[in-house]
């Protein structure tokens, strides 16, 4: 388990996330992140919100493919001993604010047409509505910060530490991974059927 013996030591594990090396690396990863979001068509708010009207399912297709790819890749690297899972930062679970925040986020997503990352890509491709959305997101962040005295107690509601699906459902990580892949594949089949049905109805 000693990090030094592993071929891949992360900047997080070395406590170097605040160094120039991390900033350069984050910038390069951001380049790829922005490229793929734009290639996926996520510089279009109509495409992003299309999922909520059964018009376009790219959000589900892209999101689940990305999650499954990273999940299988990371599990593979850990299994081969190339990466120590403990060198990857994992967020703690706070179920209360994550569920309530998720609900508010979803409402804002369909209203505003963007999420933060896609709004950056939208702005980069010239969308005025993305700029306005980002201004709103900046104001919303500040609103949260200045309402902090009354929100602080709720911010830890449902605290669980680092909590994972395998622990929650008492399954092995391998079985959980297979289940996530199965759910993703099922979702792909469903949206392909829905899209084909829609194409026939329009023909």
């Amino acid at each position: 388990m000693s990090a030094s013996a592993l071929p891949l030591a992360t900047l997080f594990a070395e406590g170097r996330l605040d160094t120039t090396a991390a900033f350069v690396l984050a910038g390069v990863l951001g380049l790829a992140f922005g490229f793929w979001l734009e290639r996926a068509g996520f510089s279009s708010s109509r495409r992003l919100t299309g999922v909520f009207y059964g018009r376009d399912f790219a959000v589900i297709q892209v999101m689940f493919s990305a999650i499954v790819t990273a999940l299988l890749g990371l599990r593979g690297l850990v299994t081969l001993g190339l990466v120590d899972a403990a060198t990857v930062y994992q967020m703690e679970t706070f179920l209360g604010p994550q569920v309530v925040g998720g609900l508010i986020f979803g409402v804002g997503f369909v209203m505003g047409g963007w999420c933060p990352g896609t709004a950056l890509v939208g702005l980069a491709s010239g969308k005025g509505d993305a700029l306005v959305f980002l201004g709103g997101a900046a104001l919303g962040s500040l609103a949260y910060a200045f309402a902090w005295p009354s929100l602080a107690s709720f911010s830890t509601a449902g605290a669980c530490g680092v909590c994972t699906l395998p622990e929650r459902f008492d399954l092995s990580p391998g079985v959980t991974t297979l289940l996530v892949v199965a759910v993703a594949l099922a979702a792909f089949v469903v949206v392909e059927v829905l899209a084909a049905r829609r194409a026939r109805a329009q023909a």
Binding site: Q98, G102, F105, G112, G117, F133, G136
Partner: peptide, 24 residues
């Protein structure tokens, strides 16, 4: 877009991340 942005900005701080940091 403005109102949606405010909600998303607020909610991202509450949840400790957005569709990138949390969902993906």
């Amino acid at each position: 877009a403005l109102v949606g942005g405010v909600l998303v900005g607020f909610a991202s701080r509450m949840a400790g991340g957005c569709t990138s940091g949390q969902s993906l």
